[in-house]
Amino acid sequence: MYKVLLIDDEQLSRELLKNYLAAYPQLSVVAECADGFAGFKAIQEHHPDLIFLDIQMPRLNGFEMLELVDEPPAVIFTTAFDEYAIKAFEANAIDYLLKPFVKDRFNKAVDKWLQQATNHTIAAPTIKMEEVVAPDTYQHRIVVKYNNTIRIIPEADIQYLEANDDYVKIVTADGSFLKKCTLSFLEQTLDPQVFARVHRSYMIPVTQLQRIEPYEKDSHIALLHCGAKVMVSKNGLSKLKNMLGW
């Protein structure tokens, strides 16, 4: 018996999933959630084997929710938006069901997962390349777990980001937060018009930049409005020059 979780803000969408799932007695729906927060809690509580996940949801979207889960279960995305397919692909999704989807298409996705779950093999993803559209959907906020609650940090509140082993330290006026991810991941998901990776270990919002001073040969130091000093590499400097049009 596998545990399945449905996360979708529309009740009718969940009803449809349950209806399709009725053909699979070995899958039992342990919970239904209407947003990312509830989804996150339900994953921690039930440890499901498979989740059906909508992307555009209130409060916390599907991707943000997945970022918070330490060991994410298998995911089948269900959404009307095709522009997220490439991101879903990167998130190692089992499949990406575009709403509205028919029962056959749904069965294909579930069968693929069942095969994988029973044989412990990794099947090739069914996401077709033509469905993969370049995403121009950058995040304008970062979600972190903080004292067992979820905190959403808008990009405007961020002073700088610092790589810290397996974590990234997010520094804001209210203190700093740790998020389990790499700086490169945030470099890809945050808006490159706003943030600049100025060093192997640092990323700053360009609006935070107050001035740049030479430090050693080939390296500089950036003074931020918040008072912090951040290392800037040779590469980082040319990136900043590009962004600011010096």
Partner: peptide, 8 residues
């Protein structure tokens, strides 16, 4: 999304 609701 509306079509999906209809399906449901």
């Amino acid at each position: 999304n509306s079509l999906n609701s209809i399906a449901a």
